[in-house]
Computed example of a mutant assay.
Amino acid sequence: MVSYMNLLMYGVGGIVVAGMALLVALQEKLVYVPVLPGLTKSYPITPARLRLIFEDVWLTSSDGVRLHSWFIKFSPDCTGPTILFFQENAGNIAHRLEMVRIMLQKLHCNVFMLSYRGYGSSEGYPSQQGIIRDAQAALDHLSQRTDIDTSQIVVFGRSLGGAVGAVVTKNNPDKVSALILENTFTSILDMAGVLLPFLKWFIGGSTTKGPKILNFVVRSPWSTIDVIGQVKQPILFLSGRRDEMVPSFHMDMLYAKAAVHNKRCTFVDFPTGMHMDTWIAGGDHYWTTVRTFLHQNVLKKSNESQHNGNDSESCE
């Protein structure tokens, strides 16, 4: 009996070790999904298909990776807000074009859509530090353009994009005027136990109790909860309360952490919003919320600047 129990324990231990080794080796493939099942890496459509005014923009990240982006304008002469949009972890920027088309109509803004490294037509392989470099390259490009009002650059991130957006906003207080987060997680460490429940015994962040002995193996922790409290710009939190992927209390925790240090935080929930469709489920209320936030925190500041001597023309 003792021998049998020893064999059983060794067997279970071996399975756990093998599973952990596999997780360590394949974690990037779990966090980053540039190709959706059954689809190809290429773009299924382009902005031209939706008759949008756009240009292909090629950037080079600070470590030499070549990146593809779309810069989409509301109108040829639009100098209103420019939204730097960071997508979720799965698929590519083409899968967000319909949402961006509506965004242009509702907000009268420009939108810059970045393909992270390894996504769409961009080169390289995704990683946390790599994507942070990519986001910085996109912001630096926008900041140097002469056809937009660079005082009205707004970062908008959904899910993983919110984690990306929080970092680039925190790192660039002089270039980003405001931040919008939608259905974003506190950290990948916390999400590990949500997606694979057995991992909560080994990996965890601020929302996870118990030992976290394997946190050190996670190469893309994306700890938004540690970043958000350092963001000084106005922040809008958009939370779908039926989010089936990221528990909605993650957004509650991010807001609570940010509000301690930043009085210009706004939290709005959408009772029927799920992870990917909050902008649909929220209807007019969703877009009115975003538009009001921009008017109060971005356009108002820009108008004050214009009255002080800048006569640039908005497309509002």
Rank of each mutant, 00 (worst) to 15 (best):
V290M: 15
T60G: 07
D147G: 06
S248Y: 14
I153D: 08
A137T: 05
Y116N: 05
M1K: 10
S42M: 07
M253S: 05
L160H: 03
N110K: 07
G193S: 07
L179P: 01
I213C: 08
G283S: 05
D190Q: 08
C315D: 11
T79C: 13
S248K: 13
V168M: 03
G64Y: 08
D243K: 00
F54N: 08
V24D: 10
L8F: 11
I180T: 01
D252S: 02
Q233A: 05
H295D: 15
V260Y: 04
N171T: 03
L26T: 14
L50E: 06
T146S: 15
D63E: 15
E123M: 07
G157V: 00
W70F: 07
S177W: 03
Q129P: 00
T186Q: 05
P234S: 05
G165Q: 03
Q87R: 15
L23K: 00
R241H: 08
I235G: 04
E244T: 08
C109E: 06
T272R: 14
G130H: 12
Q105K: 14
C78H: 12
R145N: 04
H295M: 13
S69C: 15
K257F: 00
M245K: 13
E98Q: 11
G240D: 01
H108V: 12
S239R: 04
I225A: 10
E244L: 04
Y286P: 04
P81S: 08
I93K: 04
L22I: 06
N171M: 12
E313M: 13
V2Y: 11
P271G: 09
N183F: 01
R219P: 01
K73M: 12
R145T: 03
V17S: 00
A135V: 01
M251I: 00
S206C: 07
H295K: 15
L67C: 04
Y32L: 08
V35R: 03
P211I: 08
G124F: 07
P76G: 08
G165W: 02
R158E: 14
F54C: 07
S305K: 15
F293N: 12
Y32D: 08
H261P: 00
F156H: 09
L30K: 01
E123P: 00
K200D: 09
V194S: 07
Q144G: 11
Q105W: 09
K175C: 04
W201M: 12
F237D: 04
K41C: 05
M274Y: 07
D190N: 09
S69Q: 09
K263N: 14
M253A: 07
V65R: 11
G282E: 03
D77W: 10
